[in-house]
Protein backbone atom coordinates (compact mmCIF):
# COMPACT_ATOMS: atom_id res chain seq x y z
CA UNK A 1 0.00 0.00 0.00
CA UNK A 2 1.24 3.51 -0.82
CA UNK A 3 2.30 5.53 2.23
CA UNK A 4 0.68 8.92 1.78
CA UNK A 5 1.82 10.23 5.19
CA UNK A 6 5.25 11.39 3.99
CA UNK A 7 4.18 13.43 0.95
CA UNK A 8 1.22 14.85 2.88
CA UNK A 9 3.53 15.86 5.73
CA UNK A 10 5.97 17.44 3.29
CA UNK A 11 3.09 19.19 1.57
CA UNK A 12 1.82 20.63 4.86
CA UNK A 13 5.32 21.82 5.80
CA UNK A 14 5.75 23.58 2.49
CA UNK A 15 2.14 24.73 2.06
CA UNK A 16 1.80 26.38 5.46
CA UNK A 17 5.14 28.14 4.97
CA UNK A 18 4.00 29.40 1.57
CA UNK A 19 0.62 30.48 2.95
CA UNK A 20 2.11 32.44 5.83
CA UNK A 21 4.67 34.05 3.55
CA UNK A 22 1.83 35.09 1.28
CA UNK A 23 -0.13 36.62 4.16
CA UNK A 24 2.93 38.50 5.45
CA UNK A 25 3.95 39.68 1.99
CA UNK A 26 0.47 40.90 1.17
CA UNK A 27 0.52 43.17 4.20
CA UNK A 28 4.08 44.39 3.65
CA UNK A 29 3.40 44.83 -0.06
CA UNK A 30 0.28 46.91 0.54
CA UNK A 31 2.06 49.13 3.05
CA UNK A 32 5.10 49.26 0.77
CA UNK A 33 3.06 50.37 -2.23
CA UNK A 34 1.76 53.27 -0.15
CA UNK A 35 5.25 54.15 1.03
CA UNK A 36 6.67 54.03 -2.50
CA UNK A 37 3.83 56.24 -3.76
CA UNK A 38 4.81 58.84 -1.15
CA UNK A 39 8.56 58.34 -1.42
CA UNK A 40 9.62 56.71 -4.71
CA UNK A 41 13.24 56.54 -3.50
CA UNK A 42 12.19 53.91 -0.95
CA UNK A 43 11.48 51.39 -3.74
CA UNK A 44 14.73 49.44 -3.29
CA UNK A 45 14.27 49.16 0.44
CA UNK A 46 10.66 48.03 -0.02
CA UNK A 47 11.76 45.21 -2.34
CA UNK A 48 14.05 43.96 0.43
CA UNK A 49 11.31 44.26 3.05
CA UNK A 50 8.87 42.33 0.87
CA UNK A 51 11.47 39.57 0.51
CA UNK A 52 11.97 39.21 4.26
CA UNK A 53 9.05 36.82 5.01
CA UNK A 54 10.24 34.49 2.27
CA UNK A 55 12.35 32.84 4.96
CA UNK A 56 9.18 31.04 6.05
CA UNK A 57 8.52 29.35 2.73
CA UNK A 58 12.20 28.62 2.22
CA UNK A 59 12.45 26.91 5.60
CA UNK A 60 9.19 25.10 4.76
CA UNK A 61 10.77 23.94 1.52
CA UNK A 62 13.88 22.75 3.36
CA UNK A 63 11.78 20.87 5.93
CA UNK A 64 9.65 19.33 3.17
CA UNK A 65 12.79 18.24 1.33
CA UNK A 66 14.20 16.74 4.54
CA UNK A 67 10.96 14.83 5.17
CA UNK A 68 11.01 13.45 1.64
CA UNK A 69 14.70 12.57 1.67
CA UNK A 70 15.09 11.25 5.20
CA UNK A 71 11.75 9.51 5.64
CA UNK A 72 10.95 8.76 2.04
CA UNK A 73 13.76 6.26 1.82
Amino acid sequence: MVDFGIPIGAGIAFGLGALSTGIAQSKIGAAGAGAVAEKPESFGLMIILVAIPETLVILGFVVASMIMIMLGG
Partner: peptide, 16 residues
Amino acid sequence: IGNILSYARIMAIGLA
Protein backbone atom coordinates in the same frame (compact mmCIF):
# COMPACT_ATOMS: atom_id res chain seq x y z
CA ILE B 1 20.02 30.95 15.03
CA GLY B 2 17.07 31.99 12.84
CA ASN B 3 19.46 34.22 10.89
CA ILE B 4 21.83 31.33 10.32
CA LEU B 5 19.03 28.97 9.24
CA SER B 6 17.96 31.68 6.83
CA TYR B 7 21.10 30.91 4.80
CA ALA B 8 19.39 27.64 3.86
CA ARG B 9 17.83 29.72 1.09
CA ILE B 10 21.13 29.42 -0.78
CA MET B 11 20.42 25.71 -1.17
CA ALA B 12 16.63 26.05 -1.49
CA ILE B 13 16.58 28.68 -4.24
CA GLY B 14 19.34 26.85 -6.10
CA LEU B 15 17.42 23.58 -5.88
CA ALA B 16 14.18 25.20 -7.06
